Structure formats: C-alpha cells, structure tokens
Amino acid sequence: MALPGILYFILFKYWPMGGVVIAFQDFHPFTGFTGSKWVGLKHFHRLFSDPDFFMLLRNTLMLSVYQLVFAFPAPIILSLMLNELRREWFKRSIQTLVYIPHFMSWVVVVSMFFVVFESPTSLFQSILETLGLPTFSIMMDPDLFRPMYILQVIWRDTGWGTVIYLAALAAISPELYEAAKMDGAGRFRQIWHITLPGIRSTIVILLLLKLSDILETSFEHVFNLVNSLNRDVGEVFDTYVYRVGLINGQLSYATAVGLFKGIIGLLLVMLANRIAKKFGEEGLY
C-alpha cells in the first residue's frame, strides 16, 4: 500500500532535486547538464542585487504572515465551534458545507469573486449603486489585494483544515470534560484547559509545516489575482519564477530563485522545530 506513495515522492520530489545543479550553470537545453558552462554563484548574486528582490521578499513575507495571523487560526476556531454542537446531523451538515470550497480550483474561486464583486453587473456593485454610493474596483485596487487574497484563502481552505483538528478533538477523553463539569468549569474553561491542550501537539506540527512554506505562496492563486495595477504588492517569488523562467527562458536564474526559497524554508523549519522541542513538544523529528 505504501509503494505508490513512495514512488510518487521518488519520481516527483527527490529525483528532480538533481535539477538544482543548473542554478550554478548557464544552462542550455540543447547542451544539457554536462555541456552547460559552470558559473558558480552568478545567478544568486544577480538575485540579491536585483532591484525587485526586496519587493518580492516583502510581498511574499506579507502574504505568508497574513496567512499565519488570520488563516492559520481559522480552522482551529471553526473546529472548536463545531465540536460544541450537540446535534450530530447539524454538525456534519455544516462541516460538509464549509469544506466543499476546498475542491474548487483557484481559477474557479477567483472567477467567483470576480463575478460577485468586480463585474459591472455584480451583486456588490449593484448594492453600491442602490445605496447611492460610488462604485469602485476591488480586485484592481493595490490596497485591497492582500485582504482579498486572505479572504479567499480562508473561504476555500478553512473547512478542509477542520478535518485534522476534529480528528484530534475526537481523541480527547470525555472523562476529562465530565471531571471538569463536576469541578464547576464552564464551557470556556473546558475549552481553555482541556480542548486546546489536547490538540496543542497537532497545532504545533501544522505550524511547523506552515513555517517551512513561509516563502511558498499558491502560484495559481496569486497568478490569477495579479494584474498590472496591483503587481507592486502582488508579485511574489512564484510568479516571478514563472515570468523569468518559463516566459523569458532564463531557466538557470529561475532555478536559483527556487533554490533560495527552499533553503530558507529548510532553515526556518529547523529553527521552529528546535524551539518547539524546547517548549516540550515532539516536533517533526
């Protein structure tokens, strides 16, 4: 049963790692790995001296920090709310409704938001006209790019994240809640002293995994949201790699950017794992 998963990681995760060698070459597809000229750290020097580097780093970090602050706690809060429901049929119905959006592609999600908020005949624009307020473009406004991005992440992925937390909540012994009730603890005290400590290890592990992807944003999501008006706040490393690597054909430079992201992610997860162990958690390794 493990063989398909093992083959997947070998073929699509570990085997392609050999391709990072082109980050140190002036790679040409026709000459291949062995025939391309070695240039050392030339592409990394170019990356760090690029005027767009700090803009890309700022935009990527801002989106990642927003996700950690707003999107990461959302499934935890929703799971706690669902866990308090006593009617099982109602609980399952709500859970099904909130994780259905996860199965939609980002193209569909962005298109739905465009239809609701952006098009001249959209519901949002019609409400503004009815109230006598001036209409304005949400998805073209640079100031609203990040809030729109985070709102879409929360709407699409929060429900799916509850699957893990609800499974962790199911492992908490009901006897702990019964003992707390006998001691006079209310619902909020039970959540604070029993529920949250019971899922703390799950939260820490998912947080560690999230930190490892701090420079990783959903390419499909950002690519469909970015336009010429909000590019200064929306361009991230993923879209930059696509633009310089696939469109402009600078494969070695794009690989260097990707390798830089991977190294930073590895260092962050190692640091976060070490901090978690110091606080008594198991960590990832």
Results as ranks from 00 to 15, higher is better:
P4R: 06
I10Y: 05
M17A: 08
F24R: 03
Q25S: 02
G32H: 02
F33T: 09
T34M: 15
G35V: 10
K37M: 14
G40T: 09
L41M: 12
K42A: 14
F48K: 00
L57D: 06
V65S: 04
Y66C: 14
A71W: 08
F72H: 03
F72E: 06
P75C: 01
I77K: 00
L78K: 08
S79P: 01
S79K: 01
L80C: 11
L80W: 07
N83G: 02
E84S: 10
E84L: 05
E88L: 06
E88C: 01
W89P: 07
K91M: 09
Q95G: 11
Q95H: 15
V98W: 09
Y99E: 05
Y99N: 06
H102P: 05
F103Q: 03
S105R: 05
S105E: 02
V109W: 08
S122Y: 10
S122P: 08
L123H: 12
F124P: 08
I127E: 10
L131F: 06
G132N: 07
T135W: 04
S137M: 00
M140R: 14
P142Y: 01
D143S: 14
L144I: 02
F145T: 02
F145M: 09
R146Y: 13
R146I: 13
W155M: 01
A167F: 04
A168G: 07
A168V: 09
S173H: 02
E175H: 12
L176P: 03
E178Q: 04
A179T: 09
A179Q: 11
A185S: 09
R189F: 11
H193S: 14
L196A: 10
G198I: 06
I199L: 02
V204H: 02
L209T: 02
L209H: 04
K210V: 12
S212E: 15
E216K: 13
E216Q: 14
S218C: 07
F219C: 01
F219L: 06
N230Y: 11
N230H: 11
R231M: 15
V241M: 15
G245F: 00
I247T: 12
S252Y: 03
T255G: 11
L259C: 05
I263R: 00
L266C: 07
M270L: 15
N273P: 04
N273W: 06
K277V: 13
K278M: 15
F279Q: 15
